[in-house]
Design a protein around this nucleic acid. Structure first.
Lengths: 199, 199
DNA sequence: GTTTAAATTAAACGTATGTTTAATTTTGTC
DNA sequence: GACAAAATTAAACATACGTTTAATTTAAAC
């Protein structure tokens, strides 16, 4: 599958660092197939983002209308689900983050922002309704979300640092380690809770 | 100055997206000067990182031994100084972040990790001594630092999102806006305080 | 003013890139 | 099995890249 090969290479070597030839070789297809199926290299990238898009949002949106959960439980559930998703799709997360931080290929930004803002707005609604219900402090919602996502990204960005800080040997992937993921999740949970809940 | 041109272009278009020709044109020097002065393109990049290195660390290290400040004041001061520095050098911060998240050009990682870990270890000592003094809760120090840095990075990464969330018009740079920077600083301060301080 | 080294230049080199073409093979349909 | 459309291939195309070269200009030293 060309998209899988592209996702892997973009994650490892960046968009420009991955040649169409590399991608096709990894996918075991002919060089011309990328242009045949996706028009050009940029089309391939856009398909990659679209493929990522919808999956998570549906699951998270259900949280909004669930009457059986308290506000803080919804925050917990959102953070856990988001962490899982970003850990599982670390490569694509990094690729998108890099592209978002560049002025190159700006037309990608729209597609990426759409995906991103969709999730952000769900989290925002969850926190806002908690504030309105008087259960949360009146915090800076947008920046709190930035803190949540930023924490996860920061962990995803630097594999070597995580290995060092968490004491992993060089040959294991810390992101597959269930204990470490749990450590991150529970840190984020406590961070959000201590910031949101009234004293 | 070649280094300034490179810093600007790497920030906007990434390492691979910035050609030596682009850099030389922006710096108004001949194409061959990069190889004459820096050996090759990678040498230019390494010089760029080294130039960034030392500046901040000295100022932050002084915090460690300042007896006139409380532990929480040191945390505040560190966070403020770090935020200022990353905002002021946004371009280079993004460039380094992108390179750290890639497996390409791994020999850069050492230089970058050195700079980064130096600052992290200062913050770690500050928090640890606050914990030992019984003034902070026994938190996950490494991940708390990741949250601080991650929050700043997350804000730096997505200019369009910041503009949207904070309501800036399209033609102003939100990172130059003193009010916005203050908003980020005070959010991080409150986040750290509410997480660190005992109930 | 001559000499020597450093700085700068224009041009070329070899290679890698994204893309296209035209030919060939595979697949599905009647 | 014949035909048509789709899928796949090898080759070539044009361009952009990082780097090198050899010539020229500038600067400094005596």
């Amino acid at each position: 599958m060309i998209l899988d090969a592209a996702e892997q290479l973009f994650a490892q070597k960046g968009y420009e660092g991955s040649s169409v030839r590399d991608i096709c070789q990894l996918a075991s297809v002919n060089l011309a197939m990328v242009n045949y199926y996706f028009g050009n290299k940029e089309g391939l990238f856009e398909k990659l983002i679209e493929r990522k898009a919808s999956f998570l949002r549906e699951r998270l949106r259900k949280l909004l209308d669930d009457p059986s959960m308290s506000h803080i439980q919804k925050v917990d559930a959102f953070a856990d689900g988001y962490t899982d998703r970003l850990f599982e799709r670390r490569g694509l997360t990094l690729t998108i983050m890099r592209e978002m931080s560049m002025q190159q290929r700006c037309h990608f930004h729209e597609t990426m922002a759409e995906v991103f803002l969709g999730n952000v707005s769900i989290m925002r609604q969850i926190i806002r309704s908690g504030i309105e219900a008087g259960q949360f402090r009146d915090v800076d919602v947008e920046l709190l979300i930035a803190s949540m996502i930023g924490t996860i990204n920061q962990v995803l960005i630097n594999e070597n640092m995580v290995r060092e800080l968490a004491g992993f040997p060089k040959d294991v992937n810390p992101y597959d380690d269930e204990k470490f993921r749990h450590r991150v999740k529970s840190h984020i949970r406590q961070l959000l809770r201590s910031y949101l809940q009234k004293l």
